[in-house]
Simulated scan of single mutants.
Amino acid sequence: MKGQEWYQTAEVAEEYEEKRFSGGGRLIDRREKRAVLEAIGPVDGKDVLEIACGTGRFTVMLAERGADIVGLDISAEMLQQGRKKAHAAGVADHLEFMRGDAARLPFPDDHFDAVMAMRFFHLADTPASFLAEMQRVSKDQVFFDTFNRFSTRSIYNWALPMGSRLYSRGEVESLLDSAGLGLAQEDHDFVLPYGFYRQIPGSVARTFRSADTSILGVRGLERLASVSYWNATVE
């Protein structure tokens, strides 16, 4: 797994959200949370697993909406940040954070209503094995995102500390098929890569975001998106 040691440092965990989701990064945070909520739907009473939950951005959000959720991550430092967030939100008794390996999920088959992973598959060395595990423990739904190969993401990918795995649509379809998953819904966004938005103030980012959204609103131009959200069903 790319960046496994990097994500486990206390310094990275403590600064993770401030560096990525302040300024123009707030637009990314809002969009990702909307994507999750639209995909998972009403969550009250649902059993949900989030793998690679990191600092608990989505874990806590879903717990606040009534989900019975487990957040799993390999980094104890990230999980500690998530626990702090859960306590601050008053939902610490509504969720569970666990340290574990996404390649060997410690749950029986068909254990959760939905299994999700955000900001994960770009780090995966063996995405097929991870997706198969997600499918195994889910009764109904698997949701995840990918960074796209033929997009602006590829332009600066070399400059990232551990790089990223980029996916074509064909690769994602093949992974879904191999894992016994059927594609139920897809969404594509952000012509400009995340790294660009994180480097500019929020007021400036909104202008670029408006242009970005307009481009992707033209039929056929969704192929320019740097990020895709995949909502799949267990077959």
Rank of each mutant, 00 (worst) to 15 (best):
Q4N: 08
W6S: 09
Y7Q: 06
Y7H: 06
T9V: 05
A10W: 12
Y16N: 15
E17D: 15
R20N: 14
G23N: 14
R26F: 10
L27R: 03
K33P: 03
K33Q: 01
A35G: 01
K46G: 01
D47S: 12
V48C: 07
E50F: 05
I51P: 01
G54H: 10
R65I: 04
A67V: 06
V70I: 01
A76Y: 09
Q80A: 14
G82F: 10
R83E: 12
H87P: 00
A89V: 09
G90M: 05
V91C: 09
D93E: 14
D93G: 10
L95M: 13
F97P: 01
M98V: 13
G100H: 12
G100P: 03
G100E: 12
A102S: 08
M116D: 00
F120P: 00
A124Q: 03
D125L: 05
T126F: 04
P127G: 12
A128D: 15
L131K: 04
A132V: 12
A132F: 08
A132N: 13
E133K: 03
M134A: 07
Q135H: 11
S138W: 03
S138R: 04
Q141Y: 02
F144A: 05
F144W: 09
T146S: 06
T146L: 06
F147D: 06
R149A: 07
R149Y: 08
R149C: 02
R153L: 11
S154N: 06
I155W: 11
Y156I: 12
Y156C: 09
S164M: 12
S164L: 09
E171K: 00
L176A: 15
G180A: 08
L181S: 08
Q185E: 14
Q185T: 10
Q185M: 13
D189N: 02
D189Q: 05
Y194M: 08
F196C: 04
F196I: 02
Q199H: 06
S203E: 15
V204K: 13
T207N: 11
R209Y: 10
S210I: 02
D212V: 05
L216I: 03
G217K: 04
R219F: 07
V227M: 08
S228P: 00
A232P: 01
E235A: 11
